[in-house]
């Protein structure tokens, strides 16, 4: 096993398809394929995508309650993923999406996730530390449960680095900032879905994005990635800053899970080809575009990703 993903606040993702959905009405689902559920959360998504590409990996995090047990049972069906979760008292969160394919609407109900106690956090850190002896790459992604200390990512990354492990992070917010300042991972993608912000700086112009990417490299990262509006991504390494611009208009509604695909691509490239960070970013970009174009839920081969390597142009901007 090579990779461990960490998802502190995973979710059970449920999708229900209802035609002409309206509030205050009763609907019946007669076709079972119109209501399905699967384990989710940023790290878990990467685990599932890696698994489809044939990479055995381990998923670690908190789960809780009835939802947590359903989540675990579903995840254990994936033969390439080893589960390594700490069970807490309160329920794992659910993300419920009601899709109306007639009127093209999505109605979402998301819960916030369990409170975890100090004992649970301590247990997770200790289990994580033990698990480091089993892997060479660690990805930590997503949000954290409400009362987890804000230096949790910093703590986890510093333990990984002590073990000589290659580290990856996709997140934003206080725990992201602390990790960057105290124990910067090697690959950093800023999650800009909620807010276009890097620390306190609003990201508006291209220069703001270049500043953020370079600042991440200054903190010690080898590769920084920020999505830049819809049309592309800003990439920085020790050798400069690039804009990867997509050659076509991307349908915004298809951007779900793009960040997770990007990280999956980067990890997959490094696992197979070694540490060429710019090339890894290109492969990550191609994976993200492949995901947008893909009708099926998952991409199952490297060849499929390779097809999208020329769907974007790379332009050095600094």
């Amino acid at each position: 096993m090579d990779v461990m993903t960490v998802t502190l606040n995973p979710s059970l993702d449920r999708e229900i398809i209802v035609e002409n959905f309206k509030c205050g009405k009763m609907f019946r689902i007669s076709n079972p394929s119109n209501a399905f559920m699967e384990p989710g959360g940023k790290g878990v998504n990467v685990s599932k995508m890696l698994s489809k590409l044939g990479v055995e990996n381990m998923a670690l995090g908190f789960l809780g309650g009835f939802i947590g047990r359903v989540f675990l049972e579903k995840l254990l069906e994936d033969r390439n993923i080893t589960s390594n979760f700490i069970f807490v008292e309160e329920e794992t969160r659910e993300n419920i999406a009601i899709l109306d394919l007639v009127n093209h609407t999505i109605t979402q109900i998301n819960s916030s996730g369990p409170k975890v106690t100090d004992v649970d956090i301590e247990h997770l850190i200790q289990r994580y530390e033990n698990s480091l002896s089993l892997v060479e790459h660690v990805l930590i992604s997503g949000s954290v449960p409400p009362n987890v200390p804000k230096d949790i990512y910093a703590t986890l990354f510093s333990l990984a680095k002590k073990n000589g492990i290659t580290t990856y992070m996709e997140a934003n917010g206080e725990h992201f900032n602390e990790a960057l300042e105290k124990s910067c991972p090697m690959v950093v993608r800023v999650d800009l879905r909620k807010e276009k912000k890097y620390f306190d700086r609003e990201l508006k112009e291209l220069d703001d994005y270049i500043y953020a990417a370079e600042d991440i490299i200054k903190h010690g990262a080898k590769l920084a990635v920020l999505s830049y509006h819809v049309e592309g991504d800003i990439i920085a390494t020790n050798d400069g800053v690039w804009l990867f611009a997509v050659n076509e208009k991307v349908d915004r509604s298809h951007l779900f899970g793009v960040g997770d695909s990007f990280m999956t691509g980067i990890i997959y490239y490094i696992l197979n080809n070694g540490y060429n960070y710019l090339e890894a970013a290109k492969f990550g970009m191609a994976t993200a575009i492949a995901k947008v174009h893909h009708i099926e839920k998952y991409i199952e081969s490297k060849e499929e990703i390779n097809k999208y390597l020329d769907y974007f142009e790379t332009k050095k901007v600094k």
Binding site: M58, G68, L76, S83, F87, V88, H123, S131
Partner: peptide, 23 residues
């Protein structure tokens, strides 16, 4: 089951009971 839920030696028996129940 590819599940490596486990405890280390210095965890208390009380914690063992809690985790078995939750799990």
């Amino acid at each position: 089951l590819k599940d490596v839920t486990s405890l280390v030696v210095d965890v208390t028996i009380e914690r063992f009971i809690t985790l078995c129940e939750r799990h």
